[in-house]
């Protein structure tokens, strides 16, 4: 079976996935992805007509919590995982806008 994995496609997917991929990595990845796809493409042979998809095996439905307020973290706790913060805000490089 064939698939349509190309270096360009790998780069496009990496962009979607917010991953930086070097040219070298793109090459290896395209081979790995291609091998994996060839393997999993076997399922295309199975007839699944009329079968409902299962995304949850618990059989649970309508699971809600009541609208009650519980305590939040302190600002210090919220920011405890990173060094990059400023006056109580998380800080990142400027995002492109305008």
């Amino acid at each position: 079976m064939t698939n349509d994995i190309t270096i360009e496609k790998v780069k496009y997917i990496a962009k979607l996935a917010n991953l930086y991929i070097s040219d070298e990595e793109a090459k290896t990845l395209s081979k790995d992805l291609s091998d994996t796809l060839d393997f999993i493409n076997k399922i295309k042979l199975l007839n699944t007509k009329g079968l409902k998809p299962t995304s949850n095996v618990t059989g649970l439905e309508n699971v809600f919590r009541e609208d009650k307020v519980s305590s939040s973290l302190t600002q210090e706790q919220a920011l405890s995982g990173v060094s990059n913060h400023y006056k109580g805000y998380f800080k990142v490089k400027a995002v492109l806008e305008e």
Binding site: Q75, K87, G88, Y89
Partner: peptide, 12 residues
Amino acid sequence: KVPNTLCCPVCL
């Protein structure tokens, strides 16, 4: 409200 004071592990 003061920034990042109404957050918990879930909404962070």
